[in-house]
């Protein structure tokens, strides 16, 4: 259906790149990069996804409208992550009133709410 036909060599090259990147993902998993663990893994994954979208899914050769729709999907992904992070990143910004244990306060041991589910779960088993 689509107008553009890529040479087979392109597909093999992309496939090769994806395989190499998969090896990188696996390799990196054995090395502890500390805080960089997550960013590196994500960077490799995003590169792979980009290759698939651009070449295997032919977006590189598609109309502006198709490209726009693809970008739209990423925009909504950004909303999903970004707006969820408004919660996670801001937990603990405000102390809860009257010493209650509420949103985002980091009380580990004496946390009454956190301990309860563990206890009930044990009863259930």
């Amino acid at each position: 259906m689509a107008g553009h036909i890529s040479p087979k060599s392109t597909y093999y090259a992309i496939f090769g790149a994806l395989m190499v990147l998969t090896a990188v993902t696996v390799g990196v998993a054995f090395i502890n990069l500390g805080a960089l663990n997550f960013p590196v893994a994500m960077a490799v994954a995003v590169t792979k996804a980009t290759l698939v979208i651009l070449f295997f899914m032919h977006v590189k050769y598609s109309s502006k409208l198709t490209k726009f729709i693809v970008l739209m999907a990423f925009f909504f992904l950004f909303i999903l992550f970004g707006m969820t992070l408004t919660d996670y990143l801001s937990r603990g910004w405000y102390a809860s009133p009257r010493g209650s244990v509420g949103a985002g306060t980091q009380v580990e041991a004496e946390h009454p709410v956190r301990q309860q589910p563990a206890a009930t779960a044990e009863q259930a088993h």
Binding site: I79, Y94, G104
Partner: peptide, 20 residues
């Protein structure tokens, strides 16, 4: 797509997020 957390104001999300 920007309003969903109004369902979970009392579920323990941060006050800042709830205000947004």
């Amino acid at each position: 797509f920007l309003v969903w957390a109004h369902h979970i104001f009392v579920a323990g999300i941060s006050p800042y997020s709830a205000m947004v």
